[in-house]
């Protein structure tokens, strides 16, 4: 299975390890993420400025994928939302569609809406499935508490992103459970990291970030696990500017990095030390938490029996 890999603008230059870890993990399940140089920015940065200019770039990206006959796999939440928004708008606004296709035609591109957009978590959760993930596990984490921050634009508005239940997301919950880590129920899980205000209202941006860091700490999180590229940069870069001492820093661990470790992939391949908030001591203690996967055949048997009894 092949996907056109949409990395957006931040990931290739600032969070390359996120792309690499995702590729490595999906490769284990024979899913190839093909880098596509023809992709452009998803349009998200101009959303405050002009709605039409926000839609056009995503329409082009979808048209590029369409031309290559591939569906798109996305890591960044904001890119995901932009692509989904474009699909939604163009499905109903035929006048805009015509206008946009006129621009795309200059490059022999055309948007017709056949290319699908998938977040890599959906690929893991739905396409591969929890069962196959579990079967491939070589390790599972024990006593590892992580605070997942979902990122706003993947969940909401739910009519547009159609990703998961927007009040009680299940996908990340299930996936983190597979790794054996404890997915903390914490105060900032579904909230904003502040990234959208960076450079526009910096003090508010910092407040929102600090609130999340202290919230995750209060919940006793060992790591913060951002799903979105913007959240990642907030926790892995902006946090460094905020922290007064190294002890203040709440380290970042990305989901494909944790899953990759559990699948037996190397730390270097997953780029864990490339997370700026990570240290070699942390890596050691993280490795120490990994043990053989819990044999859940007993549970399975029980589960199998239950429907048999009821029928």
């Amino acid at each position: 299975m092949k996907y056109a890999f949409f990395q957006g603008c931040n990931i290739p230059v600032r969070i390359e390890q996120y792309a690499r870890a995702t590729q490595a993990v999906l490769h284990q399940f024979d899913i190839e993420l093909v880098e596509e140089r023809e992709f452009n920015c998803c349009g998200y940065p101009v959303r405050n400025v002009d709605e039409k200019s926000y839609i056009l770039p995503s329409a082009r990206n979808l048209a590029v994928a369409e031309k290559k006959n591939l569906d798109i796999a996305v890591i960044c939440n904001c890119c995901f939302a932009s692509l989904m928004k474009a699909k939604n708008v163009l499905a109903t606004n035929s006048q805009l569609l015509e206008e946009i296709n006129l621009i795309l035609a200059k490059e022999d591109l055309q948007y017709s809406g056949v290319a699908e957009v998938k977040h890599f978590l959906t690929i893991l959760h739905t396409d591969i499935g929890l069962k196959r993930l579990k079967d491939k596990l070589r390790y599972q984490a024990k006593d590892l508490k992580v605070a997942v921050i979902q990122g706003c634009h993947i969940l909401r508005p739910r009519e547009i992103t159609k990703f998961d239940h927007s009040f009680v997301p299940e996908i990340t919950n299930d996936l983190v459970q597979v790794t054996g880590a404890l997915n903390l129920d914490w105060h900032g899980k579904l909230e904003c990291c502040g990234a959208a205000l960076a450079g526009i209202n910096d003090s508010l941006c910092r407040d929102l970030l600090n609130e999340k860091i202290s919230g995750a700490r209060q919940a006793d999180a060992r790591f913060i696990m951002p799903i979105c590229a913007y959240c990642h940069l907030q926790f892995d870069t902006s946090q460094l500017h905020l922290a007064e001492t190294p002890e203040d820093i709440l380290p970042v661990l990305l989901f494909p990095q944790l899953l990759g470790l559990c699948l037996g992939l190397g730390e270097q391949e997953l780029g864990i030390m490339e997370n700026k908030t990570f240290t070699s001591e942390l890596l050691q203690s993280l490795s120490a938490m990994l043990g053989p996967p819990e044999d859940d055949t007993k549970k399975k048997k029980k589960k199998r029996k239950q429907p048999a009894a009821s029928s």
Binding site: R14, P45, R47, A196, A198, D202, L233, T237
Partner: peptide, 16 residues
């Protein structure tokens, strides 16, 4: 420069 109110400001703020 009204474009400062766009998210093009994000990577700039990040770079400090």
């Amino acid at each position: 420069e009204t474009s400062m109110l766009s998210h093009f400001s994000f990577p700039l703020a990040l770079a400090q």
